[in-house]
């Protein structure tokens, strides 16, 4: 099977119920969520975000991820032609309480953030043999 041709995905602006005190746009990062027998993996595309500028916060089963773009990289540059807009990223997910909240790990590579949420032992799938 030959790989499909890529198409541009239009960025979706974040619709938030709260307002921020900071100026600037927020976009919803494209996200994949996968589940295996022992963990849930959340993968988010946040191009232009450095790993120091990512904030992952888990409170009351809400996983909130914010990524800020360093706009100073665009200083001294005058836009001539534009196909996409640049802004920060933010997204929230409600996660189940079956996640071991102390063992959550995150890694950032090439603008892609991967968050691994391990399941608690009780929640991990178990095979039960019928005797």
């Amino acid at each position: 099977m030959s790989p499909q041709d890529l198409e541009v995905q239009q960025k979706k602006e974040l619709e938030s119920r709260e307002e921020t005190t900071k100026t600037g746009r927020y976009f919803v990062p494209f996200t994949d969520i996968h589940e295996t027998a022992d963990a849930l993996t959340v993968t988010m595309e946040m191009p232009g975000v450095d790993k120091q500028n990512i904030d992952i916060n888990l409170e009351k089963n809400i996983l909130a991820v914010t990524g800020n773009v360093d706009f100073s990289a665009y200083d001294n540059l005058e836009p001539l032609y534009a196909e996409y807009n640049v802004g920060n990223y933010a997204r929230r997910f409600t996660i189940s309480s079956k996640i071991d909240q102390n063992a959550i790990a995150a890694a950032m590579e090439d603008g892609v953030l991967t968050i691994t949420l391990p399941k608690t032992k009780e929640a991990a799938a178990r095979h039960i043999k019928v005797r």
């Binding site: 041709d5 890529l6 198409e7 541009v8 595309e45 946040m46 191009p47 232009g48 665009y74 001294n76 540059l77 005058e78 836009p79 001539l80 032609y81 534009a82 196909e83 996409y84 640049v86 590579e109 090439d110 603008g111 892609v112």
Partner: peptide, 28 residues
């Protein structure tokens, strides 16, 4: 063609140009 991947922005920097494209998760 607009709509093709990757999305590109072009900037001017003095006499020169800078092309910036978002390709998250690509192998350089």
């Amino acid at each position: 063609s607009s709509g093709a991947f990757p999305p590109i922005n072009v900037f001017r920097k003095e006499d020169d140009m800078v092309l910036i494209a978002e390709i998250p998760g690509a192998d350089k």
